[in-house]
Write a protein that binds this DNA or RNA. Sequence first.
RNA 1: GCGCCCAUAGCUCAGUCGGCUAGAGCGCACGACUGAUAAUCGUGAGGUCGGUGGUUCGAAUCCACCUGGGCGCACCA
Length: 1042
Amino acid sequence: MRKVDAKEPATSREQRVLEFWKQENIFHKSEKAREGRPEWVFYEGPPTANGLPHPGHVLTRVFKDLYPRYRTMKGYHVMRKAGWDTHGLPVEIEIEKKFGMNGKKDIQAFGIERFVQACRESVFKYEEVWRELTERLGYWIDLDHPYMTLTDDYIESVWHLLKIIYDKGWLVEGHRVSPYCPHCETTLSSHEVAQGYKDVKDLSVTAKFRAADDVDGRPTYFLAWTTTPWTLPSNVGLAVNEDLTYVLIHKAKTDENVWVAEGLQGQFVEEGDRVIAQKRGRDLVGSAYTPVFPYVVQEGKKHIVIASPHVTDESGTGIVHMAPAHGEEDYKACQAAGLIFVNFVDESGRFTKDVADYEGRFVKDEELNVDLVKDLAARGLVYEKHKHEHSYPHCWRCDTPLIYYAIHSWFIRTTEFKDALIANSQSVNWIPPHIRDGRMGNFLENVIDWNLSRSRYWGTPLPIWRCDACGEIECIGSRAELEKKAGRLPKELHKPYIDELTWPCRCGRGTMVRVPEVIDVWFDSGSMPFAQLHYPFENQDLFERLYPADFVCEAIDQTRGWFYSLLAISTAVTGRAPYKNVLVLGHVLDEQGKKMSKSKGNVIDPFEAFDKHGADAVRFYFVSNTQPWNSQLFYHRAVAEAKAKYIDLLQNIHQFYALYAGIDGFNPYQVEQVPVAERPLMDRWLIARLHQTIQGVDEAYERYDATQAARLLQAFVDELSTWYVRRNRDRFWADGMGRDKVAAYLTLFEALKTVALLTAPITPFLAEDIYQNVVRLGGDAKHVPESVHLCDFPAADAALVDEALIREMALVLRIVEMGRHLRNESKLKTRQPLAALYVPKAQQDVIAKFADVIQDELNVKEIRFVDLDDIARPMLYLNLNAVGKAFGRKTPMLNEAAKNADETQIRAFRETGAVELAGETLTQEHAEIRYEAKFEGLVTVDNRLFVGLETRLTPELVEEGYVREVISKMQMMRKEVDYGVTHHVRFYAEGDPELLQVIARNRARIDQTVLVREWSDAPLADADLTKEWDVNGKKLTLSVAR
RNA sequence: GCGCCCAUAGCUCAGUCGGCUAGAGCGCACGACUGAUAAUCGUGAGGUCGGUGGUUCGAAUCCACCUGGGCGCACCA
């Protein structure tokens, strides 16, 4: 065993452990050792390695590591395959930036092959950083055999899944209005849109659409509000709700009439205005109006009022302007009413030449919108305008504001199997449970079709070929199928190579050409249960064993991300839920509770945290601080605190054990075992607490409550250190190796060993360090598993959980606490022995068993069992402040009466809470009962217990106090010059003659305690230290030498 | 706008089924210990349990509404 330096920096300890794991291949062995055992299935959600890790990744990885470690110790086989998410817009945008490109035209010019290869190369840009993070954190995951979404095998599996979905008729193309990024020139799915909402201020305008017919000879307008003035040139209709009532208001100031919904008229009727007509929405339908811009010239039904049920009178005017290309509801309502369709915005978000005056201008440009509104205002068509703050979707990667845009896309008809999605989600153990019916439940209730296609380059190609003549389409589900059709395989299953493959259509006239789109990256990652194994082309048996997952864990933003894509694909393909238990984590926030983000500059570098506090401390902090689904504040001071109250404490105990076990050459495997039943009470108590802790920790891990496990461990380690070790220190430095000493060693050994095992999932480094040193004796104990992580999880022995003993010890601790309170009040330091402690006779049976502990802890000569009335007098003690407020001038009189209250009055107060004094009724707010000692000393009482401390000093007690004081000073000097704890040394003393006599009289005891070899008669010439002390007011000068 | 979560000491958090005087750690003040010692232990001060109302013998806990924070959703016209 090696000596332990509790001050060793955590990083150096953790480096040592990492070295050992690597050297001995422990991670690999931990998986190997459980081969053939039942599987406990974990799925890794793939991060993208082209960005740097964030503290949030540390949080998820702590929990992704902890439960697999626990399950492995419980005897399960856990496969831990890493994964990388490699496709998609984020990668493309990086490359665009890198080469100074902007938009798809530039990419085309750059060359798609070159572009795609550049993407491929950049995907693992930060892999090294991720690898280091993973290692430093102690996250055991197989990074050498990861699944990668860009490989042909992976893509082939994804194709297989798409084909199944296609064959079920759920993969369809459609023309609909979707959120669209004009920079990336592609549509986004709902879960991508969800990532990018931001609060922005946009110019909003209430425009006036002049009705064809004047009323009362005055111009009459329909009012409609919009926050997107750029959609007004494409206006083809106005929508009302058939069932709402609309009013016509005569505006006195401008002498014109305006239509708005009745429910909103309050915002439009000003002084002098009046309502001159009222109509149901259905009666307005069909009314013609003049458009506010002249650009819609296409023939057909247009510029009339139509009905749409989605119109409400909750905001705006209750009349909605319709631009069918830019709103899902607009599109549907216009179609239903048979209005024409126009789209004046091109794929890069600019006006086409149809909008002659604004051709080429970007529609989300603020100036353009201002110009449009000015244009309207010049023509008197603005009723009102203002800056409106609202949250508006932005592209989650390039930050461009999205527009709603009617475009051709491929969809998975998730709405078709919505019920199955809901049923599968219901079967999952969501942690915390509210996710099931809350976040996830709501989302699934409102599920919309999955917009799968992206008109981009770097992604899994949509495996659909279409005949350029007859339009027939075919979905390809494997490489073999493709080869059969096309006669060959491409260099890789990516654009542009894949697009080169064509074949003649059955129709005999045309060629089958692949559609240009790639798919949403979320489909890639959601396919991983299948694709990570290249299923069904390989590993069919393995897949059966590894599906579905027992456990997945990500942060809450993945509800609509990975959790959903896994669920949707799995439900579509197998009809089953892909996972059984899902731990949904909260976000990591900074010290002020603000989200950590690069732009705010408040991101704590995970590596800095590891360097400062060690990975164990970070891990323990995240696990113990709060339940993981709550937001977690992350800052250095908090981690340092977690370290101090658990990691350091445990390492201190380890150091203590190693120090003495080293000195004594204690070997737990070679000594004669002392059965627990034959060990002292203290040992039995600790063992009882230990097994109680095993039970609690095991159950907590089992139900995915590692926070509870960590807190139970922390409580146990605290008691182990501050009560067991502190109370039993002298047993470890007793001479020889008697049975009591062996019992103490065995007890502490078992506690340390078990704690190392219990804490291994949470703090794997510290656990290993203790295990190697204490359990494996630095490698000498060959008969125990090589690593703590190869051990079986400890089993609690219920028979050892002596609950009565645990309760009794709690009582003892309470007595000690009360005793220390009295010591504090008496101002008599603990080193001064006192004659007696009084405790309740009623508890004699229990207390007597622990008398020596209590006596020693409080430094009293004797414990006396008494009744409270034997040692204390109850008194009525007034709260003069309260009494003064209530009774004013009678206060002094009442106080006098309280002092003289007799026993019956006090008993009445004790029993009823009220007492009659001098004709007034005093209650508990005015008075309390205090106890006055009947002996020379102090008494304290609580509702269960009382403790009395005798403070009378006899000459003998005083002398002993001096002795203890002198011993203490001598020990401090030994410490200061850093003599070994077993060295015998020489002392010389001079000073107060009385004190010197005390020393002389107590030489035997002092010498034995302080290991004094010789008292010198003359000053020590070779003294290592000389110090002058004040010993209870008497001068003493001491010198020490070896 | 709709939905989910949260709000307890200066800070971070416990508080079980509604039930003793609402707890812990850190910080602060004071003290103790001194063979784990740059470690450790104790005592004390510190609370309108976010607010208002309700249910109840009894509410931090259950209900309603409100306020503040975090997050999510989206036809915010």
